[in-house]
Nucleic acid binder design. Structure first.
Lengths: 144, 144
DNA sequence: CATTGACCTCAACCATGCTTGAGATTTTAT
DNA sequence: ATAAAATCTCAAGCATGGTTGAGGTCAATG
């Protein structure tokens, strides 16, 4: 316990998250807290940074489980170092880029398909590849 | 009932989704089905297109509720027309673009912050704006 | 020293998007 | 005709990311 330890309410206010979320993160093992004499949570300042990192990672599309794993190298007592941050953010940047690429591809496909309604054609890239011909059969193939 | 009506299994196979998903979509009002004499679902071919549209919309990030709303103008019996498709896909393209822009901004912020660990600075754009100074207080401000 | 706000635990609940299973019926194939 | 495969309904379950509430304690204020 140190003089500048933070209560759960203060952390919540400073991080812009509800107290319930902090409880939840703790239950999930993403953050930890000490307790004061009256069993109330007390956090070192490092938690603020940790929570900031959690939120950035969430925006980047990571699940809490993934974030927990990434934070495993940052013991909860100490603040994440620049090296910690670099390691995590670099990896997140990559998966973020992949998501962006996926969505961009989808957008481009949409652009190409918006006017043509080609969703009805067998080779529309937007269309599920499974639904190509339904089955091998003779006669004209009816597409949808 | 027409000769080319499809069973739920066939629709599932052609769309690449489990039968349970089709039941689920029906329960949610996204698709509808007729029944044969033995109470089994029978679908017109239009459903294939409808499901293709649903899946594209999901990839674009829409919830089933939003998709249902968008499909409201396409009565389940008839196939979505090119106009229907244009209306929906154009709107989805826009929200997709917004998501792409959001993620791209985040990526760029990450790029700028990866090396500097600036998550610790009050004005880091990645950092929650709520946590600026904690409170008004005298003396040196300790940031985290 | 009493009240009020902050905090505690634990369980239950919410929303989304499905999946799984039980028990019964129907359809299809041999 | 019979067995296997497909289908039916309905309820319950799962995963994610939390929120809400009850019942009780702690701490700061006047």
């Amino acid at each position: 316990m140190r003089a500048d330890d933070l209560s759960v309410g203060e952390v919540a206010r400073r991080c812009g998250v509800p107290v319930s979320t902090l409880h939840f993160y703790e239950a999930r093992g993403l953050i930890r807290s000490g307790r004061n004499a009256g069993n109330q949570r007390r956090y070192g300042r490092a938690v603020l940074r940790r929570i900031a990192i959690i939120r950035v990672a969430q925006r980047a599309g990571l699940s809490l489980a993934e974030i927990k794993a990434a934070l495993a190298g940052v013991p909860d007592g100490r603040a994440a170092t620049v090296q910690d941050w670099r390691r995590m953010s670099t990896s997140w940047r990559e998966s973020l880029q992949e998501r962006i690429d996926d969505l961009t591809r989808l957008r481009d496909q949409l652009d190409r398909c918006i006017g043509c309604g080609c969703l009805s054609l067998a080779d529309c890239p937007l269309r599920n590849p499974q639904d190509v011909l339904g089955a091998v059969r003779s006669g004209p193939v009816l597409l949808d």
